[in-house]
Computed example of a mutant assay.
Amino acid sequence: MTTPTIERTHRTVLRRSGQVFAWVVILVATSAVAVGVLIPRIAGATPYTILTGSMEPNLPPGTLVVVKPKPAEDIGIGSVITYQLRSGDPTVVTHRVTSVGHGSDGELSFITKGDANAAEDLEPVRPVQVKGVLWYSVPKLGWLGNTIDQDQRDAAVYLVVGGLGLYAAWMFGGALRERRGLRRARRDS
C-alpha cells in the first residue's frame, strides 16, 4: 500500500470510530432523558431521587425512582410509596408499606418502613400525603439530576442541541468533500 492509501484508510477508520462514539453518546443521553424526564411526564408520573440508605439494597442512594399516583384504596402491604412528611411540605420519603389501617376517624392510614431500617416509621401516613407508588427505578441516574440545577440543565440542553448541530454540519461537510473527491477521481481517470 502506498502512503496516501494508508493515510486515507487511517482517516476512514478515525471517522467511523468518531461516528460510532457520537452515536453511543447520543443514544445514552437520549435514553437518560427519556427514562428520567420524558416517560414520567407523558405518563403523569413524578421522578424523585433516593438520598439516604434507608431503602438499601434495592433502592440505594442515587437511585431515580419514578412514582405514579394511585388511589389510596389500591395501596397495599409491600407497596413502595413516596409521601410527604407533613401534608403540604415538599420534603418526601420513599418507604415500603408494612401495614394498612384506619385511624380513629375511619380514615385510611399506612405504616411504613425503610427496607434497611430496624423499626417502622413513627407517624402513620395519611392518603393526602402520598405522592405516588413506585412505578420503576434506575440506579445512579438520580445523582445526575441532583448534581445540576435548572439553569445548568437548560444550558446542558442548549449544549447538546448545539453539539448535535455541529456534528450534523461536520457530517454534511464530510459528505460534500467526499463527493467532490469522487468527482475529481472520475474526471482524472
Score class of each variant (00 low, 15 high):
77 I>S: 07
105 D>F: 05
131 K>T: 01
122 L>V: 15
161 V>Y: 10
130 V>N: 04
73 E>D: 15
20 V>N: 02
129 Q>A: 09
13 V>D: 09
129 Q>G: 04
114 G>D: 03
54 S>L: 01
54 S>K: 03
26 I>K: 00
4 P>F: 08
34 A>D: 10
152 Q>G: 12
60 P>R: 01
105 D>T: 11
62 G>W: 05
166 L>A: 13
6 I>D: 03
91 T>E: 13
165 G>M: 08
46 T>Q: 15
175 A>M: 00
105 D>L: 06
133 V>F: 05
23 W>S: 13
83 Y>R: 08
110 F>W: 10
181 G>R: 14
153 R>D: 14
42 I>R: 10
180 R>S: 01
153 R>S: 14
145 G>P: 06
26 I>F: 09
166 L>F: 15
84 Q>V: 10
57 P>A: 01
25 V>F: 01
117 N>M: 11
10 H>E: 09
74 D>N: 12
116 A>Y: 05
177 R>S: 13
155 A>C: 00
96 R>C: 03
17 S>F: 08
53 G>A: 05
131 K>G: 01
63 T>S: 12
46 T>L: 10
77 I>W: 02
76 G>Y: 05
65 V>E: 03
127 P>D: 02
183 R>Q: 14
3 T>N: 13
134 L>R: 07
129 Q>N: 10
15 R>P: 00
91 T>I: 11
164 L>E: 11
131 K>N: 09
77 I>T: 15
26 I>V: 12
5 T>C: 09
112 T>A: 06
123 E>L: 12
9 T>R: 15
180 R>L: 00
77 I>D: 10
